[in-house]
Every structure is written in C-alpha cells, then in structure tokens.
C-alpha cells in the first residue's frame, strides 16, 4: 500500500498547471503544481459533470473546473462552497526533483 510510484520530474509539470497521469489501476489522475511548488493529485473528474480538472486554471491550491467553474480544493479534494462534493485525492511527494505518487 505504501509504494510510491515515480511519475515524472517536477520540471515536467508546468507551474500553475497540470499533467494527466493515466494509471492502469486508478484511471486518469490530474497532477497539479502550484506557484509554491507544491504538488497535488486528484482524480481527473469533476464531481459535478465529470469535467477534466487537469484542464482547469490553478490558483492557490485550488483548481477551477473548465466546464462549469466548480472550484476544487486540491489538498483534500473537497469542492469549495457553496457547491458540494468531493473528488478522490492521491498522496504525492517530491524527492530530489522527482514527483512520486501513491496509487
């Protein structure tokens, strides 16, 4: 369970951007990087209408879904009020400039 999978170099994820990670086990996961160089990963599927969160605009530690502008907090996958919902987050870490994820 505690296995960390190497995903990519941190430099491969744009600042305030995202990459799509396709896992054979868990499906599509959005990997985000914010302006403080923190990384987050959540299921690439908005709880509203299934929009690809990886394509949204990242601000602070939040992403705005490109389809209908729901805001998802990336630390815990919770949707920001007044909308309600959540998306599965995945643990991620950075070591020596490499991003690892627990799948």
């Amino acid at each position: 369970m505690n296995d960390w999978t190497l995903i990519c170099a941190l430099a491969d994820v744009p600042v305030l951007g995202a990459r799509v990670v396709e896992s054979s086990l868990k499906g599509r996961i959005a990997l985000f990087r914010n302006s403080a160089d923190q990384v987050f990963a959540v299921h690439d599927k908005c709880p509203h209408k299934g929009g690809p969160l990886s394509q949204g605009i990242v601000h602070g530690s939040t992403v705005t879904c490109p389809l209908h502008s729901w805001k998802i907090q990336l630390e815990d996958g919770q949707v920001a009020a007044p909308d309600v919902g959540c998306v599965t987050p995945f643990p991620v870490k950075i070591e020596d400039g490499q991003v690892y994820m627990q799948l």
């Binding site: 305030l16 914010n34 302006s35 403080a36 601000h59 705005t64």
Partner: peptide, 11 residues
C-alpha cells in the same frame, strides 16, 4: 488579495 488570482481575473 490572493496568491495567484483566480480563474476569473487571470485571463
């Protein structure tokens, strides 16, 4: 007021 704005102001 926010670190990187939001999806409304940035564009």
């Amino acid at each position: 007021k926010t670190p990187n704005g939001c999806a409304t102001c940035r564009p």
